[in-house]
Write a protein that binds this DNA or RNA. Structure first.
Lengths: 118, 118
DNA sequence: GCAATGTGCAATTCAAAGGTTGCACATCGA
DNA sequence: TCGATGTGCAACCTTTGAATTGCACATTGC
C-alpha cells in the first residue's frame, strides 16, 4: 500500500459501471486485461486504464504471470470500505436522534448541552 | 423511494469531495443550501446541484420549512450501501479461497470440481 | 525463425460533470 | 410596505474522464 486512499477516491473508483463489470468478473477468478476485453464491449486499452484506477485504490491486485498479467478483485478492501461507511452512517443517525430528543423536550433544562446557561 | 438506485450510481454520488463535505456537515444537523454555501467555498447553486444528486440516491432528505428548505444526511442509506459492499467483498474472498484450495491439491481426484460426494 | 498473442505508451476525440453568473419570484421580519 | 434572505431555473464555461486508434516491444509456441 502506498497511501490509505481517501474515501471519496475509493468511492469514485466504484462509481463507474464499466469498472463494476470488471470487478464482478475478476471476483469470479483472476483474468488478464485481454481476456476481459474479449468478453466486454470496450477496448483492451480502456480496460487497462480502469484496472490502474482500481489498483491505485487497492480494489485490484495484479501479478505478472509469464507473458500476461492477471488481475484479481480484493474483497478485503471492499470490506474495509464497508466498515468505514457503516461507522459514518451510524454517527449520522446518532446525532439526528439526539437532535430530535432535544427538540421534543425543549423545556427540560437538564438535557441541555453542557447543562449550563448560555 | 422512487427507484432502488443502482450500486455504481450511489458510489458515484459519494465519489465527489465536495459532496462528502456537504454530507459531513449535514451529518451534524439539518441545514439549508444557503447556510452550506456560507461555510463552503462554492456557490449556493453548485451546492443545490450536489444536493439533488445526493437526494436522488437517497443519501439526503429535504424538507420545506417556511421560507427555506432544510436537508439532512440519511445514515440508514449509507448503512444499507455498506451491507451490500460487505456482502460482495465476502463473496470475492470466498471464491478466491476456493480457487487457491483447488490449486494447492491438483493431484487429488476426490476434490476435483465435479466431485459430488461432499 | 516467425506468426500470434499480450502489454505499454501516446495522441486524440467527445460527452459529461462541476462550477459560475444572472434573473425572477416567494417569504420573512421590522 | 419594503428590504433582506432563500430558492429555482437557465445559459454558459472549463476541465475531467471514458474510450478510441495507432504503434512499438516482449513473450510464447509451433
Amino acid at each position: 500500500m502506498t497511501a490509505p486512499a481517501p474515501l471519496p477516491t475509493v468511492c469514485a473508483a466504484l462509481g463507474d459501471p464499466t469498472r463494476w463489470e470488471i470487478l464482478t468478473r475478476l471476483g469470479e477468478g483472476p483474468m488478464s486485461a485481454s481476456a476481459l476485453a474479449k468478453v466486454m464491449p470496450v477496448s483492451r486499452q480502456a480496460i487497462g486504464k480502469h484496472l490502474e484506477v482500481l489498483r491505485e485504490v487497492g480494489l485490484v491486485e495484479s501479478e505478472q504471470r509469464g507473458r500476461e498479467v492477471v488481475h484479481v478483485a480484493v474483497g478485503a478492501r471492499l470490506g474495509a470500505l464497508a466498515r468505514e461507511l457503516d461507522r459514518i452512517g451510524r454517527s449520522w443517525e446518532t446525532r439526528l436522534l439526539r437532535l430530535k430528543e432535544l427538540a421534543e423536550r425543549p423545556a427540560d433544562p437538564e438535557t441541555a448541552e453542557g447543562s449550563a446557561d448560555r
